[in-house]
Design a binder for these strands. Sequence first.
DNA 1: GTGGACATGAGGTGCGCACCTCATGTATTC
DNA 2: GAATACATGAGGTGCGCACCTCATGTCCAC
Lengths: 341, 341
Amino acid sequence: MGRPTINDLAAEAGVSLATVDRVLNGRAGVREATVARVNEAIERIGYVRDPFAASLARRRDFRVLAFVSDGDGQFLGEVRAAVQKTAISLLSDRVVLELEPFRPDPHLFAARLGAINPEDVDGVVLMAPETPHLRDAVRHLRERGVATAAIISDLPNSRVDYFIGINNISAGRTAASLLGRFLGPGPAKVAVIADTLTARDSLDRRLGFDRVMAEDFPEVEVLPTIEGRGDPQGLEAALRNLLRGHPDVRGVYSMAGGNRLLLEFLARSGLVPRPHVVVHELTPTTRQGLQTGQIDAVITQDLGHILRSAIRRLRAGRDNRPILQEQERIRIEILVRDNLY
Amino acid sequence: MGRPTINDLAAEAGVSLATVDRVLNGRAGVREATVARVNEAIERIGYVRDPFAASLARRRDFRVLAFVSDGDGQFLGEVRAAVQKTAISLLSDRVVLELEPFRPDPHLFAARLGAINPEDVDGVVLMAPETPHLRDAVRHLRERGVATAAIISDLPNSRVDYFIGINNISAGRTAASLLGRFLGPGPAKVAVIADTLTARDSLDRRLGFDRVMAEDFPEVEVLPTIEGRGDPQGLEAALRNLLRGHPDVRGVYSMAGGNRLLLEFLARSGLVPRPHVVVHELTPTTRQGLQTGQIDAVITQDLGHILRSAIRRLRAGRDNRPILQEQERIRIEILVRDNLY
DNA sequence: GTGGACATGAGGTGCGCACCTCATGTATTC
DNA sequence: GAATACATGAGGTGCGCACCTCATGTCCAC
């Protein structure tokens, strides 16, 4: 007999196909009592919408805009590349995913979000720092019926519908867990490097890192964070300064960006023994660092998976379908030279 | 204008819909020259079959049998559970996935495979040790038009259509890479434990492990493998014997099964300092071991991902559609306490 | 009681494709 | 040149659903 169809559902609920359709697709003009009757019938006969038929009957594609900063860090480049790659593979699934790089100007960006026409766009994927303007723009988007998903970095005050990314406290803990073990017993000094500690991600990572170091590796001294702030000369000077004060540093934890410079600096400084290095995000630089042995471990997240997951969630939300939690969990991946893909 | 449809394709190729259908679905009775013309037209206009419409029009589900040993190791239990869980979530994708636990009797198993009716089954997923009987049965299956996918453990001589799982040499290398770093500089002894070294997986892991130890950590002495052979008392005795000969063992690598006993043994023996432990496969036991700190790292693979990937590949093969390589890559996952999910 | 707002039903169309039947063509064989 | 096998076309049906129109029914306010 196969799965129940909307016909079975209509019969079970004692209503017409038109009403079933109104309920299933959230159209107006149905009494609450009738909605309830249909929903009960859904439960009773276990009706599940056929996504294939639904997608076929719906004559338009599922349209998603992905906003990613147009900045020039390697990681941002990876994210943009992943969006474009994912877009191609999703075409055959009736999904049109478009990348919109944006200038980091809060006003412009908010205006762009405000100009989105809900008729043309089903969902929006955002990788952006949270600002008051953004927060308001996102809320406004939601009110107009456009679903929103933050990726990689959460927007906790913007009430996005979904956040798809890793828990950065756990990521920081993971880094400490590895680095602490690499250092072994006994006292050791560890340097921590970040682009800027104002970003939510870095703060969380630092928090998790410090906690595990304090609890599990009390003999490790975590030096004050070096902030690169996207300024190569500044970072270089800070690193040199660090090494002067602590020539016996034995571990380095890099929470974001600036890894190319860091690796060059470490190579030049010729520390013996080579310090243990744990960094975040797989990029051409960190990949090479793993292969050459300059980096012990990279903590990363699968960008393709994150984007596919964001699309699946936006779509499941629109279709009022459940998701498979397990599949949508974004892993904190640990890469060493030998499990690098 | 949307994507090209079979109508556009027929027009472009200068043939009828019927012929397009024959070519697309591999039916007989089309001249080679005509097939070529259609395929060229496909290239020219970039036709991609609409999987939604195709799945809808095809009135039957995609049916897959999953054969997993009915043995009682924890890992096997996890695999069987993953099959059943995946089966439920795939129902809404018109996939019927059925678990068939099998007794490890080569004759019986081969007979069961031989009894499969290609009319009823589109594909078969296998997690089984390769035997001559199995090899012949798999080849026979393929000849009769049933696609085959080996998961977790490859069947290199059976000519299965797909293998979905990790590279076990790399997995062994990864284990050595971690354990070597955990041990730190200086000499150290490492114990290696396996169910049996006759299984292909364990052999590969051991191979990768030994290579990395020899190349990168020459001061580490890898002791002869202890084989549990599914015999608790034997394993216990072997472990006790090991500790007598090498009370200074500082690292343990467990390549498969028997982890519960191993952890109990280590807890009882009260070695100081606690040896570093790296094991394979996430199970209730190893999960707990991570949480309590008895295990430093678990090297594992995502069973749900493996099964979904197997289904996607079988299906893409049947539909003659391309797959997204990146999505089907099975990762060698490293879990420590802090990135455990 | 009349008009209007709202709730529901009846019925149709088409999405892109798989699968089927039957007719008609064309090349091959003896 | 007749018989045969094979290649191709024409045309139809239905998968389960979204979306649309129009008719009919019900209730309330004034």
